[in-house]
Amino acid sequence: MGVVVRAEKLHKTFGTLEVLKGVDLDVQEGERIAILGKSGSGKSTFLRCLNFMEMPSSGRVYFDGAPVGTSQAELCRLRINVGMVFQSLNLFPHMTAMGNVMEALVSVKGMTKAQARAIASEQLGRVDMLSKSESYPINLSGGQQQRVAIARALAMEPRVLLLDEPTSSLDPELVGEVLKVINALAARKMTMVLVTHELGFAYHFASRVIFLHDGRILEQGTPDQVLKNPAEKRTQEFLTGFNEFSF
């Protein structure tokens, strides 16, 4: 079990607003990390710094022990290895589901279309979207689109998958099908870092829960430790806010 991705003293400032105030994290091979925290705590920004969707203001990201530079070549290499699924789905609207999954296999990895199609079919099958492979995103539900987006990310065979609130933009009845797919990945020992508001899912999914508050990691541990017996007052308050409604 090695460290795949390491974040070291990550800071991120937007204008005068300091969103991340020095966050460290080691993501171990096979780990499933759930990052929780209030809106504005910096959890999405932190996740997005791990694959440089946001440029950290300072600090370093390591992949397989080597620091990642900011040249385009290094960023592209990192992003092939560290996949991402977005809250806003972001399928390419001018391509079918199949086209979405094949695209980077051909244009980034240089595969032939036949090779790409074979891999894309397999990935679409795993998220149960093979029957819709020739549909355009506009004709798919949010849940279906997100499953295609997951297949698209996995087709690149990343070592780590980052999931940024993957169910937040979905209608409630579509959340389950996406969580089921993520759960299946967990069963296959995929290394994942998930930012979510689904506490119940985080509890069952995660091998480690991190609570972020005001740009810092306030508390982390097993789901039982953080979600059932939080040590910090702010974590307790955060969980109570949820419990009033959902438990």
């Binding site: 969707m53 385009q72 592209c76 992003r79 092939i80 001018h94 980034v108």
Partner: peptide, 25 residues
């Protein structure tokens, strides 16, 4: 912005991103 990010997150260089994802749209 999401389209740019989706392309980059797949490891696309900027020229590929432009040619395959952004310009066609």
């Amino acid at each position: 912005r999401g389209q740019y990010e989706a392309g980059r997150a797949l490891g696309m260089p900027e020229t590929t991103l432009l040619r395959r994802i952004i310009l066609p749209q």
